Amino acid sequence: MKEIYDIAVVPGDGIGPEVSKAAVRVLTEALGSTAVLRFAEYPAGAELFQRTGDSFPAATFEACRSADAILHGAAGLPGVVHPDGTEAGLDFTLGLRSKLDLYANVRPIKLWPGVTSPLRGREVGDIDYVIVRENSEGLYAARGSGVFLRGEVAMDPLVQTRKGIERIVRFAFELARTRGGAPADGRRRVTCCDKANVLRSYALFREIFSEVARGYPDVEAEYALVDAMTLHLVRQPSHYDVIVTENMFGDIISDLGAATVGGMGMAPSAELGDGNGFFQASHGSAPDISGKGIANPYGTVLAGAMMLDWLGRRHGDRRLLDAARRIELAVHDALAQRNALSGDIGGTMGSADITGILCANLAPAASAA
């Protein structure tokens, strides 16, 4: 257990500064007088690139590398791109993944009270699974290193290695052991999502998944092709507990999953390595609503709770673990009892009001901490 945890906050672009500010306020309230988090802001993103030509300064990377955890708002602005057409705002997130080897992208998909799923008849408790996305290999690892010939031919390689696959699959099975199982039957289950019937790289993913699964007889292992998975997540989401998959497939199906629980504003994420952790909501920078006070802060607040849980487990710090649980309870109560819904999930409440309600829910517990 540490006396003080240093948190590097990178607000980013668009609504990023608004939602990161909300999360910092809630985190501070949850820990109350203990004051164990020390926040410091650092610049990165598309807006910075427009002003300076540098989207990810070396000083920001060094601060993130040495911090106990990294909290991010959002990145990217339309039209702010490099000469090759790729988004400058993504340099920060993609750069951190590769430089800090953040190989496990953890994306919980959970239906909260008060939020209406577009899936007919789905209620709270029906949708509660986690997508574990391999974050360091796959198709996205080719960014900046593919082939582009005279504006006529472009190629991006899809690379998967035994080491990369084995560690992400093991991560998924270990995660399943900490959960209560799938909502439909309570069984701990890890689903391998791939395209093994077409591509050798995914056939290797499935082969190594099977090898690792044999070491976890207490967790059920199963397989689904990614095209079928998009159907299953709509028709039978309650069947799933933990899903593990390649980088690009994980990106796609996690957005689909988020749509079933209220959208990207309700979707936190963690990107974890053996030594560093990076936390943010899954949504983009939404520049069309920036500065209007209507951004949904729940995804970033819940990402902050994931950060506390990760830090608390790493350092054996009960203060952080308790605060993480209180934040989740505060979110539950805000949605269930106070109808604190932002516009994207069917309400009219602004981000400041939602943040205030969350802090009010936390205040009694924080004062007693």
Rank of each mutant, 00 (worst) to 15 (best):
D126T: 10
P118G: 06
L96K: 02
L119Q: 03
E134Q: 14
L119N: 07
G114S: 11
D101E: 14
G121M: 06
R120D: 08
P118Y: 09
N105V: 03
P113I: 02
L102K: 06
P113Y: 09
D126A: 14
L111T: 11
G125R: 13
L111S: 12
L94A: 02
F92P: 06
A104N: 07
R120S: 13
K110I: 10
V115S: 11
E87A: 15
N135Y: 08
L96W: 01
V132F: 07
I127G: 05
G114H: 08
E137Y: 09
L94H: 01
K110Y: 09
V106M: 10
L100N: 03
L90V: 05
L90S: 14
N135P: 13
K99T: 02
D91Q: 14
G138P: 11
G121Q: 06
G89L: 06
Y129W: 15
T93L: 15
R133L: 02
R120V: 11
N135T: 03
D128R: 13
V115K: 08
L94G: 12
R120N: 07
E123H: 14
G95W: 06
D126G: 13
G89E: 01
V132E: 00
S136W: 01
F92D: 00
V115M: 07
F92L: 13
P108Q: 04
G138H: 08
L100Y: 08
D126W: 09
A104M: 07
G95K: 12
D128P: 11
Y129T: 05
V132I: 13
T116I: 14
L102N: 03
S98V: 12
T116W: 02
G138E: 00
K99M: 03
K99P: 00
T93C: 05
A104W: 06
L100M: 15
P113M: 04
Y103E: 01
A88C: 10
G95T: 09
P113A: 05
L119S: 10
E137G: 12
I131G: 02
I127L: 04
L96F: 03
V115I: 15
D101R: 13
E134M: 08
Y129A: 00
D101C: 02
V124A: 10
E137D: 08
F92A: 08
L119I: 15
E87T: 12
V132Q: 02
S117Q: 12
L102V: 07
P118S: 10
I131P: 06
A104C: 11
L90Y: 01
D128N: 15
G95M: 02
L94T: 03
E134F: 09
N135M: 05
L111Y: 12
L119M: 10
G95N: 08
T93S: 12
V130M: 01
D91N: 13
E87Y: 14
F92V: 11
Y103T: 01
K110V: 14
T93E: 00
I109M: 03
A88P: 14
P118I: 06
I127V: 15
P113L: 06
E87Q: 14
P118V: 11
G138C: 09
P108D: 01
R122F: 03
T93H: 09
N135W: 06
G125I: 09
D128K: 10
V106F: 07
P113V: 03
S117K: 13
L100T: 09
G138R: 09
K110N: 04
Y103L: 01
R133D: 04
V130Q: 08
P118K: 08
L96D: 00
V130I: 15
G121N: 12
Y129L: 14
D126R: 11
D128V: 09
E137Q: 14
I131W: 03
